[in-house]
Amino acid sequence: MIKVALIGAGKMGISHLAILGAHSDVKVVGVTDTSKLVTDVLSKYGSFNCYSDYKKMLEAEKPEAVFVAAPTKYHTEIVSELLKRNIHVFVEKPFSLNTHEGKTLVQLAKEKKLINQVGYHNKFLGTFEEAKQLISEGFLGKIQHFTGEAYGPVVVKPKQDTWRSKPTEGGGCLMDYASHVIDLINYLIAPVENVHGSILKSFYSDTVEDAVYALLETSSKISGVLSVNWSDETYRKMSTSLTIIGTNGKIIVDATELKVFFKDNQCPTNYTKGWNIRHINELTQPVDFYLRGEEYSLQVDYFIKAVQGKVPNIINTFESALLTDMAIEQIKNFKNN
């Protein structure tokens, strides 16, 4: 059994906690949150050992691995403390608010040889995984252009503040929504290296952007458009998609569906010339415990297996998440210029 603790029991933290709670190789040894209401419920009904100070928890419970789902502005401080104590870390996305600090954390995790993972869960979705395979095996030919999109109904009218509405704390559509799309572009195509223009718009929020539009270029010199809006109530929940066109075909992929067009018969054996449609039900891996989507359980399971030494620590590493933070920084700076 791996001894695991959680720091930050908000929406993502509680979701991780439930998945960890149901995991047969995990013993949850402690939970830290600043809300008395939350820790009260977790200790009364869930019999978790709860703390308001994470350092006290680390001293008392000696976890081998910790999930960090505190607001982004605390990531650097907490993650660096964990690494110094030789604890494996899973941290929520985005990784860090400041790429300089992010680099330090990447370095520290490397030196300490600790397992490090960031919560970009889309990579554990069967549809995106299949798209990754098709692209990396060259079936699309030379990639010409991509469009990365995400839409959802988070802020659809003027509302009160939380940390998500404070740019200094990691709030806003760029950090929350666009980060997922950029991370997928980095993974499926190549890391975004240059930003040739960006527009950050506020529709309802006073202090942060509700939409992000940008012109991107990857390290492999492929151009693309980013279009993200979290104030779009025509979507029932967040929907993330990528359209990628190459010399041999085109892919349109989201969490539920993979649509692939091949120009000729030079395609994988289970595909044919023209349009092919595959759905998540045939592409997903089964899980032992399901909450909100297989990908959430799969990413947790992958991290636990990495700690156990059963899989390599190569998906969603701090290093890959830092590349996403760097693109975010460029989009932000371009706007400020």
Partner: peptide
């Protein structure tokens, strides 16, 4: 879920 994302728990 959308309310929690926007307003916190």
């Amino acid at each position: 879920a959308n309310a929690v994302t926007e307003l916190g728990i």
